Simulated assay, not measured.
Amino acid sequence: MKKRLAVIGHPISHSLSPLMHNNEFHELGLDYEYEAIDVVESELELVINSFRSLDFSGFNVTIPYKEKVIPLLDEIDEEAAAIGAVNTVVNRNGKLIGYNTDGQGYMSALENISPTWKKKKILIIGAGGAARAIYISLLRHSAAMIDLTNRSVQKAENLKTDAKVSNSNVLSISEAEEQLGNYQIIINTTSVGMKHTSGVPLQLTNLNKEAVVSDIIYTPMKTTWLQNAEQKGAKIMNGITMFVNQGALAFKYWTGISPNQERMNQVVINNLKERNNQC
Score class of each variant (00 low, 15 high):
V61N: 07
T62P: 02
T62R: 05
T62G: 02
T62K: 02
I63T: 00
I63K: 05
P64S: 03
Y65Q: 01
K66C: 14
K66G: 14
K68N: 10
V69M: 08
I70R: 10
I70K: 10
P71G: 07
L72Q: 06
L72A: 07
L72N: 07
L73T: 00
L73R: 07
E75D: 11
I76Y: 10
D77P: 07
D77C: 13
D77G: 09
D77A: 09
E78C: 06
E78Q: 09
E79I: 06
A80S: 14
A80D: 15
A80K: 11
A80E: 15
A80I: 10
A80V: 11
A81I: 00
A82L: 04
A82Q: 08
A82D: 02
I83R: 11
I83K: 11
I83Q: 12
G84C: 12
A85T: 14
V86F: 12
V86E: 14
V86L: 13
V89K: 01
N91F: 03
N93F: 05
N93E: 15
N93G: 10
G94L: 10
G94W: 11
G94Q: 11
L96G: 10
L96H: 05
G98R: 06
G98M: 10
T101P: 13
D102P: 02
D102R: 02
G103E: 07
G103I: 04
G103W: 03
Q104E: 09
Q104N: 08
Q104Y: 03
Q104W: 00
G105R: 04
G105D: 11
G105K: 05
M107C: 02
S108T: 04
L110V: 06
L110N: 02
L110A: 03
L110E: 04
E111S: 11
N112T: 11
I113P: 01
S114M: 13
S114Q: 13
P115Q: 12
W117V: 07
W117K: 08
K118R: 15
K118V: 09
K118T: 13
K119Q: 15
K120E: 15
K120Y: 01
I122R: 00
L123H: 02
I124Y: 01
I124P: 06
I124N: 05
I125G: 01
I125L: 14
I125R: 05
G126E: 07
G126F: 00
G126T: 06
G128V: 03
G129P: 15
G129L: 14
G129W: 14
G129D: 14
A130I: 05
A131T: 00
R132K: 15
A133E: 13
I134D: 11
Y135T: 09
I136G: 09
I136S: 05
L138H: 03
L139D: 05
L139Q: 07
L139R: 10
L139G: 04
R140K: 14
R140T: 03
H141C: 03
A143H: 08
A143G: 12
A143S: 14
A144G: 10
M145I: 06
I146V: 10
T149N: 01
T149D: 02
T149S: 06
N150M: 00
R151K: 09
R151C: 06
R151T: 01
